[in-house]
Amino acid sequence: MLLVTSIIAVVLTGMFIKLSLAVISLRRKNKVGLGTGGHEDLERAIRAQGNFAEYVPFGLILIACLELNGAPWWLVAGPGVALIIGRAIHAKGIHTPPPDFSKRVLGMKFTFYTLMTLMVLNLGWTIYKMIG
């Protein structure tokens, strides 16, 4: 069962819905059906949503693999929480005008380090299970 992954996926999905609703709201406000219409706030919202959609699936897949392979809950939950934190910081940094690039960079660092950690954990745990 993927109990820890499920909780992490629920939180991340809620965050994605919030980002998506922000895009929809700005599209309505600015009367833009496709693209940004030259509106900087809409462009930021679209990129916050897009960036989230680009990185989160890899994290969830690696988290699920780790849990499916029998890693302890805390080894699964730790990177999951880090991914949530990284995505929240990034979204706040890119979405709040004017863009706070220090938060955006910090959010991406959290995200990249989490993905790299998940790569190492998955590889290490798999080798450990194969040998042990």
Rank of each mutant, 00 (worst) to 15 (best):
R47G: 02
I89Q: 06
G78Q: 04
H90R: 15
L62N: 08
L83T: 09
A91M: 01
N69F: 15
I46K: 01
G78D: 08
P57G: 09
N51W: 01
L83E: 07
G93A: 14
G80D: 08
H90C: 11
A45M: 04
K92C: 08
I63C: 08
N69Y: 13
G59V: 00
G86I: 07
A91D: 01
F52Q: 03
A53F: 03
Q49K: 05
A45N: 04
H90M: 15
V56C: 02
I63Y: 06
I85H: 13
R44T: 02
L60G: 01
H90N: 10
P72C: 08
P57E: 09
I85C: 11
V56Q: 04
I46H: 01
G50T: 03
I84K: 04
E54V: 01
G59E: 06
I46W: 03
W74Y: 14
Q49C: 03
A77N: 09
I63G: 10
V81P: 09
Y55N: 10
G59Y: 06
W73H: 13
L60R: 03
A77C: 13
I85T: 14
Q49Y: 02
L66A: 13
V56F: 00
L60I: 04
I89N: 10
E67I: 11
Q49N: 02
G86Q: 14
Y55H: 08
G50Q: 04
L60V: 02
A77L: 15
Y55A: 01
K92G: 10
I85N: 11
G50K: 06
G59W: 00
L75V: 11
V81N: 11
R87H: 06
L68Q: 08
Y55T: 07
A88R: 07
N51L: 05
R47M: 07
A88H: 10
L62K: 08
P57H: 14
G70L: 10
V81T: 15
A71F: 04
A77K: 00
G59R: 00
L68V: 00
P79H: 09
N69S: 15
G59P: 03
N51Y: 00
N69M: 15
A45S: 03
K92H: 12
R47N: 06
I61R: 11
V76A: 03
G78P: 04
G80V: 12
F58R: 05
F58I: 00
A82Q: 14
A48S: 09
L66S: 12
G70E: 12
A48C: 06
G50I: 02
I85R: 03
Q49F: 08
A82D: 12
P57A: 09
W73Q: 14
I84Q: 10
R87Q: 07
W74P: 13
I89K: 08
W74R: 12
G86N: 11
G59A: 10
A48W: 02
R44H: 05
G86R: 09
V76Y: 07
V81L: 15
A53I: 07
I89G: 06
A53V: 04
N51A: 06
A82F: 15
E67T: 10
P57W: 14
G78M: 14
E67F: 13
R87W: 02
G78R: 01
A48M: 04
L83C: 10
G93Y: 00
P79M: 12
L68E: 00
I63V: 15
L83W: 07
G80L: 11
L62D: 03
P79V: 13
C65S: 12
Y55P: 04
C65T: 08
A71L: 07
L75A: 15
A45I: 00
W74M: 13
A82E: 12
L68G: 06
E54G: 05
G59H: 02
I84S: 01
V81W: 15
